[in-house]
Simulated assay, not measured.
Amino acid sequence: MRIVFAIILMWSAMPAAAADLTVRIGNLRSAEGQLLVAVCEEAQFTKPGCAYTGQAPASGGVVTVRDVPPGTYAIQAIHDENGNGTLDRRLMFLPLEGIGFSRNAPMRRGPPRFADAAVEIQGDGVVSFDMAYFQE
C-alpha cells in the first residue's frame, strides 16, 4: 500500500507534459495564403520570437501548434494572404492583412494587452477566435 501511495505522490508531482494546441480561426476574408500563429508568453506577446508557432493553409481555418507546455499564453494570428511570411502594413502601422488574438481581444489604438488575450493551456486543447481586417 505504501508503494502505491508513493507512486501516486511521485506521479502527481510530475509536471504536465507539453501537448498540441488546435487554433481555429473564423471570419477569414479569403482562403488565399497562410495562417501564421504564435502562442506567446507575456514577455514575447506582439513581438517576434514566440517559442511556440505553427502555420497552415488559410483554406482550412485551423492551425496546430505542437508541444505547448501548460501555462498562461496569449495567441496571435496573421492571415498572410500574399504568402510573404510577414504582416503587411500601410503607413508602417495599419495592417493590410488579417490579424487576430485569442479571446477576440480588442485592438484599441494598437495591439491588445496580454491580460485581455490570455488563455490557460493545460494539455491538448482548442482555442477559437476571429480574424479582424482593417479597411484598405
Rank of each mutant, 00 (worst) to 15 (best):
R2M: 13
I3Q: 05
I3D: 11
I3M: 14
I3T: 15
F5M: 13
F5E: 15
F5I: 13
A6I: 12
I7G: 07
I7E: 11
I8H: 10
I8D: 13
I8V: 13
L9G: 13
W11E: 13
S12T: 13
S12L: 15
S12R: 13
S12N: 05
D20N: 06
D20K: 06
D20E: 12
L21M: 07
I25V: 05
I25R: 05
G26E: 08
L28I: 09
R29Y: 12
A31D: 13
E32W: 08
E32V: 00
L35F: 05
L36A: 00
L36I: 06
V37N: 01
A38Q: 08
V39A: 03
C40A: 04
E41C: 12
E42N: 10
E42R: 13
A43P: 05
T46F: 11
T46P: 05
P48T: 04
P48W: 01
A51L: 11
Y52W: 04
P57M: 07
A58C: 12
S59T: 11
G60D: 04
V62F: 09
V62P: 06
V63I: 02
V65P: 04
V68M: 07
V68W: 07
P69W: 02
P69E: 02
P70A: 04
G71R: 00
T72N: 08
Y73E: 02
A74G: 01
A74Y: 03
Q76G: 14
Q76P: 05
A77I: 02
H79I: 00
D80W: 07
N82I: 07
G83Y: 11
G83E: 09
G83H: 10
N84R: 04
N84D: 07
T86I: 09
T86E: 13
T86H: 10
T86C: 02
T86Y: 12
D88Q: 06
R89L: 15
R89I: 09
L91K: 10
M92V: 15
M92S: 14
L94R: 05
L94F: 15
L94I: 15
P95N: 09
L96K: 15
G98A: 11
I99Q: 07
I99P: 11
I99T: 09
G100W: 13
F101C: 02
N104M: 07
A105R: 07
P106M: 08
P106V: 09
M107V: 00
M107S: 14
M107K: 07
M107C: 08
R109N: 15
R109H: 15
G110A: 05
G110S: 04
G110K: 06
P111D: 08
P111S: 02
F114G: 12
A115V: 00
A118L: 00
V119L: 09
V119A: 11
E120W: 14
Q122R: 14
G123H: 04
D124H: 09
G125K: 10
G125W: 08
V126C: 12
V127A: 11
V127Y: 00
S128F: 09
A132D: 15
Y133N: 00
Y133T: 06
Y133L: 01
Y133K: 00
